[in-house]
């Protein structure tokens, strides 16, 4: 709401229903729209409709709901409309459970819906960062006219932490009058569509989208380096909650005089390939350890970054289990 987003359409699903419950009370107070849709399919298409009208619009859901929303995400990306989707990931596949997981990495970074499109994906690792990412997501969605996903997990969705709102900048949504369908008074009618039966036109549209994704790759790479310096022996790569757990492990190793750093991708698309590649090329680094709450998804991107020049180990927990710092320490000791 601080981002100027007062249109919200959603369907309840654990572990993030608290958002809908809060907004159901709050939106009417600010003259906004809260609507509980009949399904995630409908909710996401309501997002599609409201985005067409040029308003800042968003939804929150969790893994199975996001699968149902993937249809609309593909359309919204194709129609080049701004919208924000928050996925508080729970363990899957299938109905899975309601516990934290990072099992939707592929779905978020590789599409989920049909066709050749990308979401901008931000992965916060604290409640503070979640707030900042949601604010940023609206700006990025408007800037690129593309859906943006904030990819959290059940732990981030359920825990409470202090948040400093004063550090969050006031948003300035851009003028959307050049495309928003708000009635054709004093102008030609606008059309928002995704059907291109002519293959040449369709290819042209695909290339236009691809050029936009290249711009994102150039300008929107975000990451954090933690305790990474020139004599690191092992670099841990982790995002979100897993990265936070690894920070505690890195602190413990530092106290024991062991040089281990953490590289935390913040934008999952675009993935920080180049910065990670540079770090992996540092002479002292003899191995990388990828820690995820899945069976190994981001590790594919780490491999692309490292290009097989250093060994990459993997430690993952699944099914809602969260790795502990002690477990990560155990893995590190095997590598050193």
């Amino acid at each position: 709401m601080r981002a100027g987003a007062i249109h919200y359409f959603a369907y309840p699903i654990t572990p993030q229903t608290e958002v809908a419950e809060y907004l159901a009370r709050r939106m009417p107070e600010v003259g906004g729209v809260f609507l509980q849709a009949e399904s995630e399919v409908a909710a996401s298409n309501m997002i599609f409709g409201a985005a067409s009208a040029g308003v800042r619009v968003f939804t929150t859901s969790s893994s199975p709901g996001i699968s149902l929303m993937s249809e609309a995400m593909s359309y919204i990306a194709a129609a080049e409309l701004p919208a924000v989707f928050v996925n508080i990931v729970r363990n899957g596949p299938g109905l899975g459970g309601i516990l934290p997981s990072q099992g939707d990495y592929f779905q978020a970074t590789r599409g989920g819906g049909h066709g050749d499109y990308r979401l901008l994906v931000l992965a916060p690792s604290s409640v503070q960062e979640t707030v900042e990412h949601v604010m940023l997501a609206f700006d990025l969605a408007d800037k690129y006219r593309n859906p943006v996903m904030v990819l959290g997990d059940g732990l981030i969705g359920q825990m409470m932490e202090p948040v400093d709102f004063s550090s969050v900048p006031t948003p300035h949504p851009p003028d959307k009058s050049s495309w928003a369908t708000t009635g054709c008074k004093s102008r030609k009618p606008y059309l928002i569509k995704t059907l291109f039966l002519d293959p040449q036109q369709s290819e042209e549209h695909n290339r236009k989208l691809a050029a936009k994704y290249d711009e994102m790759r150039k300008h929107e790479v975000r990451f954090e380096k933690y305790n990474i310096d020139n004599d690191c022996k092992v670099v841990i790569v982790a995002f979100g909650t897993a990265a936070r757990v690894c920070k505690t492990a890195v602190d413990e190793l530092k106290r024991n005089g062991l040089r281990v750093g953490l590289f935390r991708p913040i934008s999952l698309f675009p993935f920080p390939y180049e910065p990670l590649h540079e770090i992996s090329e540092t002479g002292t680094v003899h191995a990388l350890l990828v820690v995820e709450m899945n069976t190994g998804q981001m590790i594919d991107d780490v491999r692309l970054a490292v290009a097989d020049r250093k060994p990459i180990a993997f430690y993952g927990r699944q099914g809602g289990m969260v790795p502990s710092p002690e477990e990560v320490l155990g893995e590190i000791h095997q590598l050193i």
Partner: peptide, 28 residues
Amino acid sequence: IPSYGPEMRGGTAYCTVVVSDHAIGSPV
């Protein structure tokens, strides 16, 4: 953090609170 884990089975509900002078790493 509220009881939100496999431990929630077995008759116990719990929450964990961490209070620290520095940034809190693992919340688990």
